[in-house]
């Protein structure tokens, strides 16, 4: 298990956090999307080996949301 740095609470066990997946742009307004773009927005997610930027939440702690970089193979975390 990893130790993750919550911006408020400092280093905490990974099990206190919720990972919300890749960082995505602000949800686009439906009318700005073609059907195909809308399908992509809904169904397509990154799925590759390497560093990925993710949204995390200290859900079982203070509730703070923050971003971090995580490697999808080694699970290393880069928070700076």
């Amino acid at each position: 298990m990893l130790l993750i740095r919550c911006p408020w609470c400092g280093l905490r066990s990974e099990s206190e956090f919720h990972c919300n997946g890749e960082v995505r742009p602000i949800r686009p307004h439906s009318s700005s999307l073609t059907d195909q773009q809308s399908v992509q927005h809904t169904c397509d997610r990154l799925n590759f080996k390497g560093w990925i930027e993710e949204d995390w939440c200290h859900s079982k702690g203070c509730g703070e949301w923050f971003r971090l970089n995580r490697h999808t193979v080694t699970h290393e975390i880069d928070q700076d």
């Binding site: 919720h18 919300n20 960082v23 995505r24 602000i26 949800r27 949204d55 939440c57 859900s59 509730g63 949301w65």
Partner: peptide
């Protein structure tokens, strides 16, 4: 979880 991620990630504005 849905509300939390929506207002913090999808529409933080």
């Amino acid at each position: 979880t849905r509300l939390d991620s929506f207002i913090n990630v999808e529409r933080p504005d």
